[in-house]
Each structure stands twice: as structure tokens, then as C-alpha cells.
Design a binder for these strands. Structure first.
Length: 578
DNA sequence: TCGGTCACGTA
DNA sequence: CGTACGTGACCGAG
């Protein structure tokens, strides 16, 4: 009898929550026999000795909902297992409690309404090496913070039992959040959000492992065109820099650039002084401020071109390839499933790749990229989360700015600016008159935003539509930021955060559907998904992106006439799939 | 070596 | 004084 069959006989069916802790000599499981209740029935415990990678692959057949401290610690991705469902205690803790930490000690503290303990720093002292699970304050002891738990099967079993308790606590807290609809969903939105956030946390580990397929030769072509040949050594690189600088300096008056040390173009203060020499006295040297002078001033045009090349050379240059692109042509960076208001973030430049490099993101032979982005997602999200019927009616259309323009009696560009200004808290500029009309036409949406802004100004914590806690409470003595900036942050966070929740729910649904279609998600970019799929699966993947959005919106926006729309394109490169 | 500022890429 | 984040160069304080 296989391990999976034996556990299935013990009641572990599909979707059933089971705590899992992986250690070098095996895995520990912990669950409750009674269905539906996290606190009912006797605890079932298994300590299974063996190679954890082998065990995890066998256990994958169970198709349960794995409850783990974090997907990375569980080691499933490293073992080559891609589970369908999970409950990520760190991700849900961040959702429910609004903290930014991912370590078990912070999760433990949040569960017990304690402030997160400081992260252990430096070498462990002798007293910290041994000792119990908890210290005198009820915090996880330093030895357990340092991973002392993850060594033997016996401690793994203890750890799995703790995981179950944290899971039960998180379920209770989520159950107590009111569903933001007159007719509550079943399951409620907060629980669905927790599932999606957990899936996103697992996806983050997968994205980090899989990477983004890049044509390294094509990146080289771009770099050679802009910054020249790959430097042989540091000496050569310095010479190339001097050469690039000289082109710009030649544009300025001789006496301004001919001193013992020429002006440093990388020093904003010196650039400002340089500009004064050609009659431009500006408060700073940001490119949007220089842009208006580029047409009439060759030195400014040269400086702006230099900046563009310099950005490529420093941030996305040869060393960037060396550091982040593997021998398999995959660009890899760290991924976080939720930062700030809840968006996914990525390192290694994955989220701010310049447009000129997107042609170098290329599908591998026999594969294609399938790209999809959500259209006008933030105003549609505002319509749903605020419950504004008029705005939701506008959001039922393919282009929601057209009906908004009609209602405000203005043109479409003005309507778009007015909607964005409302969501971002802009108070000046041309949007002023249209904003007043917005208030009359969409009173509930504007009231929702004002309430968030007010909470931000007063320092009162908020929750997004899906239940993410946005921490706005602050020390009254800390006046580093004016209350107006807290207000703008809060106004935007309730929209941006809810949009991130919808996006992750969509991504989770797509991820699940790809098990049958084939292929993988290789990039998440706030409102955009990029899939890498075998050529024969392209059409199925494109259809999946649409059906997954429909399925997600059906529960996320249940009862609202608002729709969510996406554009899907299939191509060899990211640039071509635009 | 650290944190702050400037600058700039994406959404 | 429109939001978010990540990255790199430079500066001044320690």
C-alpha cells in the first residue's frame, strides 16, 4: 500500500487542510479528523522518516490543502512538486495582521497579539543555542527563531502541531470579518482571499525557481548598440564611461568643462551648476524638467540621451546579466507575494525592465509567450469595492471611461484624468472641475475614497475589500510625514490593494488551470500575466486566461454589474505580445 | 559601513 | 505638492 493510499484511508481527501513540516530526515503531518472544524476531533499526527523530496512527491497524490509556515520552508518546489492548494501561514498572517515579516516568530507573535520580536542578529550566544520553544515573554525563543525546530522529526511534529494552532486562529479571525456584500458569499470573501494569497506565496517561490526566459544574445545586441562592447576589465569599463561622458561635455562651453576635474555627470549638484552655465537655472535636474528644453538645447538633449544609456549601463548592463541570468537563459530574481498595500514585487529588475529590453524576453524553442493584462482594473475595482451602482454600471462596459465622460459631460481624456485623480488623491490641476462632477455622479465611490483618506489622516487602521489590514496607526510624536500624505496613501491603498487581491486570485486560478494545459506563469506585473507554454497549448492557454478571469470575477465581484476585461496576445517575444 | 537623497524604470 | 516598489550612484555621518 502506498503512503498516499494509506493516508487517504485515514481520511485525507482532496482539499482537506493538513499541516506539513519538512526536515532533513522526513516530514511531519498534523490534522484534525472532524471535517469543517479546525478545533474539533482528535489530532492526527504522522512522523514519516525518509528522503523528504521522495516523500513530498508521494504525498502530492493526496491533493490536500497543505498548511505550511511558508512555501519555501516546506521545500515542495525544490522537490519538484507543484501542489494545487495550500495555506501559507506567513502570507495569511501578513494579510490578517498587516505586518511585513515572513518569519515564524513574527507569525507566532501576531497569533498571540504580541509585537513582533526583533530578528536574531549576529552569532547565537550560548544561552540561545539550547532551551525551550518559548521565552519568558511568550515569544518564540531565539533557538527556535534560528530554525532549531527544523532539525529532527520529533521537533517537526511539534512544529506541525503549532502550525495547526496558528491555522485555526487565522481561520477564526477571517471568519469574524464581515463579508462586504449584502448577500454573503459562501465561502466568504476573506477565506477566498486567504486561499489566493497563499497560492500567490507559492507562485512567488515557483517564479523564483523557474525564471523568465531571456534571449541573452538579444540583450547583448541592445547593450552593444547603446553602451558598446562588453568591457574586458574594469579599466576598459572606465574608459567606456569617460567616452560616453565626453560626448555630453563637448556640448557645453569649453570653460565649463575644462578644469582639472571635469564635472561629474552622475552628481546632480554638478549637473545643475553645469546647466546654469548655459542659462538654465532649474530647481533640480530630473528628466521631466529637462525634457521641455531638449528641442532647443543640444546640450540638454545630449544629457538626456546620456541618462538613458547610463541607466542601461548601470542597472541593466553586462553585470546585470552575469548576476541574474542563468546558464539556462532564465532571468531569476527574488519574489514577494505582497508588499505595502499588497502588490507582488520582484527583484533583479523584473518589474522595471525597460521597454527596449522586452524584445529580448523570448520563448524557448517549441514554446510561445501568452500575455494578458487587465483593462482599466483600478476604476473597475473601485466600482466593486465601493458598491457604487453608477460606477459599476459604467464598469460593465468594455471601455468604462466612455460612459464616465458622458455622465460628466466632458471628453474621454478628461474623464480618465478625473477618475485617476480621485483614486490617487490629486487635488490640483485640470481635474478640479471634473472631480466636483465625479462627486455628484458617483457619490458612493467618492465617499469610499474620502473615508479611506480620513482614516489615513487620523491614523486609524483600515482593511481592504478582501480583508488585508492596512496599518495607518502611528506614533503621534512621529511627524516625519504630513497627515496629507498619510491620507493620499490610504486613499490609494484601498484601491491598489484590492486590485492586487483580484489579480492574485486570477493568477491562482490560471496557475491551477495550467496543470491541464501545460506551461508555466513566468511573470506577474501588477495587472499583467505572462505565460510560457508549449506551442500546441497556446490557444488553450489564451482561453484559460479569459475563463479564469470570468470565474474569478464571478465570486470576487458577485452581485455587481461591474465586469473585468483582459486583452490576450500570443507571440515569440514579450514586446511582440504587447 | 550605514542611511538619506536624487534619479528613473515599471504598473 | 498623484500612488506603489526596486535599483544604483553619490554624499555625509559614524
Amino acid at each position: 500500500m502506498t503512503l498516499a493510499a494509506e493516508l487517504a484511508g485515514a481520511g485525507l481527501g482532496a482539499g482537506r487542510p493538513v499541516a506539513l513540516v519538512t526536515v532533513p530526515d522526513g516530514v511531519a503531518l498534523h490534522w484534525r479528523a472532524a471535517d469543517g472544524r479546525t478545533d474539533a476531533g482528535p489530532a492526527e499526527v504522522r512522523e514519516i522518516a525518509g528522503d523528504p523530496s521522495v516523500l513530498l512527491r508521494e504525498l502530492a497524490e493526496l491533493d490536500v490543502r497543505w498548511v505550511w509556515w511558508s512555501a519555501r520552508d516546506a521545500g515542495v518546489v525544490a522537490a519538484g512538486v507543484r501542489p494545487r492548494a495550500c495555506w501559507d501561514l506567513a502570507a495569511v498572517s501578513r494579510l490578517v495582521h498587516g505586518h511585513g515579516r515572513e518569519d515564524p516568530a513574527a507569525v507566532w507573535a501576531a497569533t498571540h497579539d504580541l509585537s513582533p520580536p526583533p530578528l536574531p542578529r549576529g552569532e547565537p550566544d550560548l544561552f540561545a543555542v539550547a532551551g525551550g520553544r518559548l521565552d519568558d515573554d511568550g515569544q518564540l525563543s531565539e533557538s527556535w527563531q534560528r530554525g532549531g525546530w527544523a532539525e529532527t522529526l520529533q521537533t517537526a511534529a511539534q512544529w506541525a502541531a503549532l502550525a495547526w494552532d496558528v491555522y485555526a486562529d487565522q481561520r477564526r479571525r477571517l471568519d469574524s470579518l464581515a463579508d462586504p456584500r449584502a448577500a454573503p458569499r459562501q465561502p466568504p470573501l476573506a477565506l477566498l482571499t486567504a486561499w489566493a494569497e497563499s497560492a500567490a506565496a507559492l507562485l512567488a517561490v515557483e517564479l523564483e525557481a523557474d525564471g523568465l526566459p531571456v534571449d541573452v544574445a538579444a540583450v547583448g545586441d541592445v547593450l552593444r548598440g547603446v553602451i558598446g562592447e562588453r568591457p574586458i576589465d574594469e579599466h576598459h569599463a572606465a574608459a567606456q564611461r569617460r567616452e560616453r561622458d565626453a560626448v555630453v561635455l563637448l556640448q557645453f562651453p569649453n570653460e565649463a568643462v575644462s578644469g582639472a576635474a571635469p564635472p561629474d555627470l552622475r552628481n546632480p549638484q554638478q549637473v545643475r551648476e553645469l546647466l546654469v552655465r548655459i542659462g538654465l537655472d532649474l530647481p533640480d535636474t530630473r528628466s521631466w524638467r529637462l525634457e521641455p528644453h531638449a528641442a532647443t538645447s543640444p546640450p540638454v538633449a545630449a544629457l538626456l540621451a546620456w541618462r538613458k544609456a547610463e541607466r542601461l549601463a548601470t542597472t541593466y548592463g553586462w553585470s546585470w546579466i552575469d548576476r541574474n541570468v542563468g546558464a539556462d537563459g532564465r532571468l531569476r530574481g527574488g519574489w514577494s507575494a505582497a508588499q505595502g498595500a499588497g502588490r507582488m514585487t520582484a527583484q533583479a529588475g523584473l518589474h522595471n525592465l525597460p521597454a527596449e529590453l522586452r524584445g529580448a524576453v523570448r520563448a524557448e524553442p517549441g514554446h510561445v509567450l501568452v500575455r494578458a493584462d487587465l483593462g482599466q482594473v483600478e476604476p473597475r475595482v473601485l466600482a466593486v469595492v465601493s458598491g457604487d451602482q453608477a460606477l459599476a454600471a459604467a464598469a460593465s462596459r468594455d471601455d468604462m471611461y466612455a460612459p464616465v465622460a458622458d455622465a460628466l459631460r466632458c471628453d474621454r481624456p478628461t474623464a480618465k484624468v478625473a477618475v485617476l485623480a480621485a483614486m490617487y488623491g490629486q487635488t490640483s490641476g485640470a481635474a478640479g472641475a471634473a472631480l466636483r462632477d465625479m462627486d455628484r455622479t458617483y457619490p458612493q465611490a467618492l465617499a469610499y475614497l474620502r473615508a479611506a483618506e480620513d482614516a489615513g489622516r487620523r491614523g486609524v487602521d483600515l482593511r481592504t475589500y478582501g480583508g488585508r489590514l492596512i496599518r495607518l496607526a502611528r506614533d503621534p510624536a512621529d511627524d516625519r510625514y504630513p497627515v496629507s500624505s498619510w491620507g493620499r496613501f490610504a486613499r490609494n491603498a484601498v484601491v491598489q490593494g484590492a486590485a492586487a487581491e483580484l489579480f492574485k486570485a486570477w493568477a491562482a486560478t490560471v496557475r491551477a488551470g495550467l496543470r491541464d494545459v501545460g506551461g508555466q506563469i513566468v511573470l506577474c506585473l501588477h495587472d499583467e500575466l505572462l505565460l510560457h507554454v508549449p506551442q500546441g497549448s497556446a490557444d488553450a492557454a489564451a482561453a484559460l486566461l479569459v475563463s479564469a478571469l470570468d470565474a474569478t470575477a464571478a465570486w470576487w465581484a458577485a452581485g455587481s454589474p461591474a465586469r473585468f476585461v483582459t486583452d490576450v496576445a500570443i507571440a515569440e517575444t514579450w514586446a511582440a505580445a504587447k
